[in-house]
Write a protein that binds this DNA or RNA. Structure first.
Lengths: 251, 251
DNA sequence: GACTTTTGTTCGTATATCGCACAATATGGA
DNA sequence: TCCATATTGTGCGATATACGAACAAAAGTC
């Protein structure tokens, strides 16, 4: 790609959008400039552009994103056939298991939920399509990382802040790499309260007809309800069934 | 705003992202140019920029958005306190009612789901945060339109393609305006299979401490399960309770 | 209330982008 | 295979944007 094929004004604007987040629902020009590392004048024009187009509100001091911004992500969720194809299977699976079931894909160091069928909420976190979790401590993350060449998985892990969310969280890079090998061999990953105390999950890859891993599928369960070492015998058959049913359907 | 405070390259790029959608998961340069009405060279640069930044994939012929694009909408969903605040109430409401419950806001002619607690799926459509429905034929849409000055609601309706999704759909502008008045007076809206046959719903506004309508809350039910004229007596008390509980909590 | 610090806005200029016209390449029939 | 058509890539002049600095306006601080 030639240098003139890159619209830096567009790239800067996207950076500005991403500056908004959980901790930053409302941003002043200076705050946004600090977060993005861009010049205040540049950030100001991006924000005014967003506001002019209705993607942001401006009260003269703070900018806040509007729901219109969801159109951008919605273009993906409604455009990717994956979502629509897996949803009915996910509903069935969730019902048979009596637990929440989800499908996610990898984006950098995180897994992104693209579809979900939830039973009564047990987690403190509220997951929905678009939600993100760190890959290294999520069952679907393990499965997706295991599908990559080891060097690549190692690279992603090394770029991740390996934080101990609970006393059970694996944070050692070599230990994680070894775990990925195990996951690759056995064809599924089990997480025992590594993300949140009281929460276990088991995941398998979704593989297409050409043998490529296109996403991950999981079932999450409260540890009080099912011990981690029972997860496989209890839910793996169901997961495998869904995996097999989806194999010819996912792109 | 001065003209130089508008970054047209950014605005054009956002238009290109929105060109992707349900029917267009993959776009060539020429297709994207046709949809957006922008010059091919411009669209090409925007798409290459998206691809360079990892927001899109490019196989040399077609561009497709990647899950990274969800970061943009996620900035809003995680940033708006509304989502987190209403979710537990929504879960409770959904459980007590035994039906799906949702919260949405207005964006142009559409309602956008920002939170949802779903019971077993009954609709053909799969709703999730970020999903959109036309406002004129959705219960939450009626409630949100009724909260606007009549001229504004009329303007939105006149910009909407008033399509008869079912034989029950109200498509006459004057009839809809009259219905909005009724909704405003009685404080809730009931939809009887106007969006999809077999589906009814009832919605109330979410009002903040200063009396401003900030969102809408609804319960959807299969018509086979609950007749439309029973919706109010059955679910209105629950909705009113939730509405009252949320009043001091929503911004 | 004067000082310092932070934030928002404006301006001139160097630089990057736009859209056009044309070239190159792919596509699809006869 | 060839030509007709559609699609994509590129060079260039005109135009718009980014940068950095300077200034203005608030917001803290003592």
């Amino acid at each position: 790609m030639r240098e003139t094929d890159f619209v830096s004004g567009f790239a800067r604007g996207l950076t500005v959008i991403e500056a908004f987040g959980e901790a930053q629902p409302r941003l002043s020009i200076a705050e946004a400039a600090k977060i993005t590392g861009l010049d205040r004048a540049t950030v100001r024009r991006s924000l005014l552009t967003l506001s002019e187009l209705g993607y942001a509100d401006y009260d003269g001091k703070f900018f806040a994103l509007t729901p219109k911004i969801l159109r951008l992500g919605h273009a993906y969720l409604s455009a990717t056939p994956l979502t629509a194809i897996v949803q009915p299977h996910l509903d069935q699976l969730s019902e048979k298991a009596g637990q929440s079931a989800s499908v996610s894909v990898l984006d950098g160091t995180e897994v992104v939920y693209v579809a979900r069928a939830s039973q009564r909420r047990v987690m403190s976190i509220n997951l929905m399509p678009g939600s993100r979790l760190p890959a290294y401590c999520a069952s679907m993350g393990r499965v997706l990382l295991a599908a990559l060449p080891e060097a690549e998985a190692r690279d992603i892990l090394s770029r991740t802040e390996l934080k101990a969310n609970t006393p059970h969280t694996k944070t050692d890079l070599e230990e994680l790499v070894a775990e990925l090998r195990r996951v690759r061999d056995q064809g599924y990953a089990v997480i025992d309260q590594e993300l949140e105390l009281g929460l276990c999950s088991i995941a398998v890859p979704l593989i297409n007809a050409r043998g490529r891993v296109v996403a991950a599928l999981n079932i999450g369960a409260p540890a009080a309800h099912v011990a981690a070492d029972e997860l496989a015998e209890r839910y793996l058959p169901l997961l495998k069934d869904t995996q097999a049913a989806l194999r010819p359907l996912v792109q």
